[in-house]
């Protein structure tokens, strides 16, 4: 006789599981940087239009996250950090993730173009394509430089916000892009240094796996040095000012100190204190980006009240 009590029905996905497909934590960063890009622009949009623009930029980022989860379901199931995601957990079918990703991509691009302008919509479409196809499908599994080039996808939101307001690209938008683009490698490699095992198991050619941790430590310092001119340079543009520059100098000094400490260490030292420095630098890198964009927002408020700027 069959014991039907042992039968376990498949888990049912709730609405929240579909929201998880959109990577809400990444979306929060996209919302913040896109909002800053839009608010610091010299052209001011109606609040409803601005809200719509930020919403659909975030939704576009979420759509690319769903496409990434559809494509990477096999390696997500192996890595500890990602195995609880809705597709590898069996809550959402891969086909559903693909359908949601494609549908939301189309809706977000069309709505952004209609609400603001065609260039903003086109840039969002390119960002989704870049993250889903260039990064997820191509670079991620083929080169240890995957996150350097793939980081461009995360760098576009403030530029799209700026373009949504002004209708064109400028030096300011370019430098906001470069700030995130150059920040991504040291931020991600600091994480990879203490999450190395995950990437090894999944066969993702992360720099720590292909070239070892010593080379990764060199790269963290090198990219941090390369990041500094872009971060400081933004302070001398029309959206910068003394407040931004002061904040940026302090943040870059601290980030450089952290990168230097990572560079000076070896594996014996890192394992002895359970990657204390690497974890601290990773956490600080999040604050670094948040405070840079926060300082730009402060400058924009000061500008509008007749203060700030050069």
């Amino acid at each position: 006789m069959t014991d039907i009590r042992s039968f376990e029905a498949p888990k049912e996905a709730g609405f929240g599981d579909f929201v998880q497909l959109l990577k809400p934590r990444v979306m929060s960063l996209v919302v913040f940087t896109a909002m800053v890009g839009l608010l610091v622009a010299p052209v001011h949009l109606h609040p409803v239009v601005a809200f719509t623009a930020i919403l659909f930029i975030a939704l576009g980022a979420g759509a690319s996250g769903a496409l990434n989860m559809w494509w990477d379901a096999d390696i997500d199931a192996i890595m500890r950090r990602t195995k609880g995601r809705p597709v590898p957990a069996g809550l959402v079918q891969p086909g559903e993730a693909l359908a949601i990703g494609l549908a939301l991509s189309g809706i977000s691009v069309v709505m952004l173009a209609l609400a603001t302008n065609i260039l903003a919509g086109a840039l969002l479409a390119f960002t989704i394509f870049f993250y889903a196809v260039v990064y997820s499908m191509w670079l991620k599994r083929s080169t240890p430089q995957n996150i350097v080039i793939g980081g461009a996808a995360g760098a576009f939101p403030p530029m799209i916000g700026w373009v949504a307001a002004t209708g064109s690209v400028s030096v300011e938008a370019g430098l906001m892009f470069m700030l995130i683009f150059m920040w991504t490698p040291p931020h991600f490699w600091a994480l990879a240094l203490f999450m190395n095992e995950d990437y090894s198991k999944a066969g993702v050619p992360m720099l720590t796996v292909t070239h070892g941790k010593k080379v990764t430590r060199n790269h963290v310092l090198g990219y941090t040095l390369a990041l500094i001119p872009f971060a400081l340079g933004l302070g001398f543009t029309s959206i910068g000012g003394p407040v931004y520059l002061a904040v940026s100098v302090l943040l870059n000094a601290e980030f450089l100190r952290g990168a230097y400490r990572i560079w000076k260490r070896d594996e014996v030292m890192a394992e002895a204190d359970n990657y204390k420095v690497e974890k601290a630098v990773f956490r600080f890198s999040l604050l670094y980006l948040f405070l840079h964009f926060g300082a730009l927002l402060v400058e924009a408020v000061l500008h509008s009240s007749g203060m700030g700027g050069w």
């Binding site: 709730g14 609405f15 579909f18 409803v48 239009v49 719509t52 209609l114 609400a115």
Partner: peptide, 27 residues
């Protein structure tokens, strides 16, 4: 079993319609 999912989709669609309406009025 699917109440939360249906409610979520329904509310999202209502919000989308409201947003398109507000955007149209502003434009």
């Amino acid at each position: 079993r699917r109440f939360s999912r249906n409610l979520g989709v329904g509310l999202t669609l209502v919000c989308f319609v409201a947003l398109v309406f507000a955007l149209t009025v502003v434009k």
